[in-house]
Design a protein around this nucleic acid. Sequence first.
DNA 1: TGAATTTATGAAACCGTTTACATCGTGCTC
DNA 2: GAGCACGATGTAAACGGTTTCATAAATTCA
Lengths: 347, 347
Amino acid sequence: MATIRDVAKTAGVSIATVSRVFNGNTAVSEDTATQVWTAASALDYWPNGAARSLTTSRSNTLGVLLPDLYGDFFSEVIRGIDQLAKREKYQTLVSGSHASVEDVLIATRAMRGRIDGLVMMAPDSITVESVTKIRRRLPVVLISPPFAVDGCSSVSIASFSGARAVVAHLVGLGHREIAMVAGPAGNVDAEERLRGYHRGLAEAGIPPRAELVVQGDFRESSGYAAAAALLDRRPRPTAVFAANDCMAIGLMSALGNAGLSVPHDMAVVGFDNITMAQYMRPPLTTVHVDAYALGQKAVRLMLDILSDPEGEKVTVQTIDVVLKVRCSCGAKPAVATNTMLGAEADQ
Amino acid sequence: MATIRDVAKTAGVSIATVSRVFNGNTAVSEDTATQVWTAASALDYWPNGAARSLTTSRSNTLGVLLPDLYGDFFSEVIRGIDQLAKREKYQTLVSGSHASVEDVLIATRAMRGRIDGLVMMAPDSITVESVTKIRRRLPVVLISPPFAVDGCSSVSIASFSGARAVVAHLVGLGHREIAMVAGPAGNVDAEERLRGYHRGLAEAGIPPRAELVVQGDFRESSGYAAAAALLDRRPRPTAVFAANDCMAIGLMSALGNAGLSVPHDMAVVGFDNITMAQYMRPPLTTVHVDAYALGQKAVRLMLDILSDPEGEKVTVQTIDVVLKVRCSCGAKPAVATNTMLGAEADQ
DNA sequence: TGAATTTATGAAACCGTTTACATCGTGCTC
DNA sequence: GAGCACGATGTAAACGGTTTCATAAATTCA
C-alpha cells in the first residue's frame, strides 16, 4: 500500500509537497504538481482517510441514525440524505435499528472520530439528556424529534396540519361521525396526527366521541383489528382516518371482508402516501409526505452548521404535506384540489 | 475532547494501560481497570476511531456501494447488510447512485483507509479491470455481478431458475402463446430472466416467437407501453411474463384501460415480489426474491474473508427464489404450491 | 546592484491510538 | 538467599497524513 512517503520519493519531492498537491494548495509549481500526480497515479496512491481525519479532525462523513431501515419511508429518507451528502462530498455512515436510548449512545460512541455530525431520527424513547450529551461532542440534527431540544436544529413533518386537513376534507364531504385509528402512544407524529384530528373536529363544531378513537401501532394488523371495534360503535362512524397508510390498508381489507364497500359504506383516509396507496382498490386518499425532502433538508441543516459552527442558528423546520384526494374518501378526485399544508398553519 | 492521555492522568496510570483496558487485554489488575473505567466515564472518554484504525489498519467498517437506493428492493438489501454488520460489530459506510465505472472508482478511493472491505452491487457497465483494481487493495464481495471475476466472491439471484419456472407454470395452465417484457439490455438479471424464459419455452417444446419479446427498462411506464405492442401480435399472446413487478403492474394497468381482464383475457406474471404485488387487483403472481437474505449473505461472505484473509476461498452463491402463485396468472392459489427454485437447477 | 519581497519547497512537530520491548516487584524453587 | 519466572505496568516508536515555520531561490524595486 503506497503511502505519501512513497509518492514523495518517486516524485523526488518532500511529503509536504505531495500533501499540498492533494489538497489543492496553490503554492506549488505546475511542474512539481504534474510530477506528483504522475507518481501518485503510477503507485495508485490516494490519501488514507483515517490518517487524514486524525490530523484535521475532519472526516467529511455524516453519521446517520435511524430507528429502522424498513419500508418505503425510511428508504426515501436515506436516499435524500445520501444524495445531498454525496453531492457535497460527504460520506454517510449509516446505522439502523436503534430501539433504545442505550442503543443510540453506543452507536454514537462507536462513531467517535469518524463523523463530523449526526443526523438522527431517534427512537420515541429518546431523552433530552441523551441528545444533550451527544451534542456536547458533535453537531446534531434531529428528524421528527419527539420534543424540542434547546439549541438543536430539527426537521419535522407537518403531521398536525395534515391530519386537520383530512378531517376538514371529510367534513366537507358531509361526514360527521369520523373515527380515527391512532398511532402508537409516545410517537410524535402519531400524537400530532391525533391532535390534528381533534382540532379538525373542533373547528367543524363536532363534539369528539372518545370511543371513536381506536389505538393502533402503525402496522397493518392493527388497522385490520381496528375495523371490528369501530363497526360496533353506535352511531356507526361513516368515515375513518388512519394515522398511516399501512393501518388504512389493513382497515380496508377488514372492511372488505365484513362485506362493506369503501367509500360507499365507509370512507377511509390514510397518511404517508406510500407507493402502494395509489394501487389500492379503491385508490387510497392520503396525505403525501416527502420523505426524500425530509432527508435532504436535514443534511442541508447539518452542512450549514458544519460550514460555520460558530454561527449555528437553531432552525426548526417543517416539511409540508399534501392532501392526495383519491377515491377511498368518496370524493371525485378530478374535482378535488391537492392543497399544500405548511408549517405556518401548525398552531 | 478527552484523549487517552487525559484518562491516563486522571486514573494515575500510563496510556498503555488505558489502551489495554479498552481492548480487553487481561494483563491489567482488576483495581487498575476499575480506576481506568471510572476516569473514562467521568471524562466521557471513548477511543477515537480514526486514530485507532490508523494504528491497527482496521476500521471495523464495511463499505457498501449500490447503484441506487431507490425502492423496496435496495432498501431490503441495505437492511440485510446493516443488520448483520451491526450484530458483528461492524459499521456500514453506504453510498448510492453510482451510475458509471468512474463513479465507483472515485467512491472506493474516497473510502480508502476507512473500510475493511467492500460489498458492492456494481452498475451494469462495470468492467473486470476495475473490480480487479479495487481488489488489489480491498476484499470485495459482489452482489449480482454481470460477470464472474476471478477469485472474487459473489451472491446472485436465481433469476434463470425463476424465469424458467414461471414459463413452466404458465405452460401447465395451458398457455402456449407466452410473451415477455424484458428488462434493460446489459443488466444481468434481465438477461438471465430472458434466458430462463427461452429455456422454459424450449423445455415445453414451444417454438420461440421473437415478436413476443418486447424490450422494457424495469420501469412501470415501459410495462404500460409494452401492452399496446403485445396486443397487436397475431396470434395474440394469452400470457405475459414481465421481468419485474413494476413492469407487470404497468402492464396490468394498460390492459385494464384496454378493457381486458386479468387473468381471464390475459395472464400476467412478474418478478421480485415487491410489497405492492400482493395488493394488486388481482394479486400479482410473481417470483419472490429475498433481498434481505441477499444483503445478509454478502456480508456473511465478507466477514468470512475478513476473519481469515489468507484462507479466502472464492464463493459464488445464489439466493433461491420462490414462485408465488396468486391470481393474476389464472391459477387457483389454494391449489398451487410455492416451489423453491435453487441454484442447483441453474444450468 | 543590493535590499526587500515573494514564491516554492523542506524539516519537523503533531494528531490519538496500539504495541513491542523494557522494567520492576513478588513469590517460588532449590 | 540467589536465581527465575511471571504478572503488571511504563516508555517510546510507529501508523500516514497536515501544517507551521524556516529557508533558499527568484523576482521586484529603487
